[in-house]
């Protein structure tokens, strides 16, 4: 074992991650929001111009997973997790993100520990009330590279129309761009529209859900992506692994303001008229560069 690996394995906070050689960001939400904020939609002159899909977003929260009948659940470690909470209606979404740029186009690895539940306002399992939880990168090449904006999307489709689906999906298309306002500087599109999700091959996965809506278990995700080829490499969730090399991300023309953008977004969707809660204990973003 090399020294770097040994040092990381000896650090209890990092030992449960398998980062590439450079840690770009290690965000443990016991330390605060760590740069995660909510995705506010684009607008010009008036907030009324914001698309409804974005207007519904609210600020993430620091949660200790407090329950009405059992008290505080706590996070994977420490007390707090980042909570992304939807509004209480079917199809509602919310998105939290961290906005970075990259300094070298190469392989990056996103790892995080997560769980999800609906608001526990019924005395039943409620396993089909959360539609999905997922993540995406919002990326753009450096301006010398010809210019594409690339948005790989991944979600765990937990339930749809009341059916407990439990499978991973990806997306390679977004909606048409719409100009906003009158200055010709701002456009918008709705990449989290419910359309165009595609099943990941062999993407079914039975995640531990536990037996009442106030008990959670934490899950691990690892997602490898290459910023040079702008293609996904692999996905892991708990004990299951997928080759993602054949999965196309959303690719759209570059925008003039977004060079080298590296945004990490997490989102939740409700499948019933209950709030969906997507909890992140910690997130580690690492890369392979000198």
């Amino acid at each position: 074992m090399d020294t770097l690996t040994a040092l990381r394995l000896a650090n209890p906070k990092l030992s449960r991650f398998s980062p590439m050689s450079r840690i770009i960001a290690f965000d443990d939400f016991d330390d605060g929001f760590c740069g995660y904020t909510h995705l506010v939609g684009n607008y010009e002159h008036t907030l009324d111009a914001m698309l409804p899909g974005y207007a519904q977003h609210t600020h993430p929260q620091l949660s200790n997973l407090a329950n009405w009948e059992s008290g505080t659940h706590g996070a994977f470690d420490g007390n707090y997790a980042l909570k992304i909470q939807t509004r209480p209606h079917r199809g509602a979404q919310n998105v939290a993100l961290k906005r970075l740029t990259f300094r070298e186009p190469g392989p990056i690895r996103l790892e995080f520990y997560f769980t999800f539940k609906p608001e526990a306002n019924e005395l039943r399992l409620s396993e089909t009330d959360v539609r999905s939880v997922g993540f995406l990168y919002d990326l753009q090449t450096g301006y010398e590279e010809g210019g594409t904006r690339v948005m790989p999307h991944v979600r765990f489709l937990n339930a749809l129309d009341g059916k407990h689906v439990q499978k991973w999906q990806t997306k390679s298309r977004t909606t048409a761009f719409r100009p906003l306002g009158t200055e010709g500087k701002t456009v918008t599109h709705y990449h989290l529209a419910p359309t165009d999700w595609e099943d990941l091959k062999n993407g079914e996965q039975k995640l531990c859900y536990n037996e009442i809506p106030t008990k959670v278990n934490w899950h691990y995700v690892r997602y490898d992506f290459d910023l040079r080829t702008m293609r996904a490499m692999s996905l892991q969730c708990n004990d299951r692994h997928w080759d993602m090399s054949g999965v196309d991300p959303i690719v759209i023309p570059a925008m003039r303001n977004l060079w080298c953008m590296l945004n990490i977004c997490f989102f939740a969707e409700a499948d019933s008229d209950k709030r969906a809660f997507f909890y992140l204990d910690s997130v580690c973003l690492s890369g392979e560069f000198a």
Partner: peptide, 8 residues
């Protein structure tokens, strides 16, 4: 308003 958890 939507509930906001902020016990910290």
């Amino acid at each position: 308003s939507e509930p906001y958890e902020c016990g910290w």
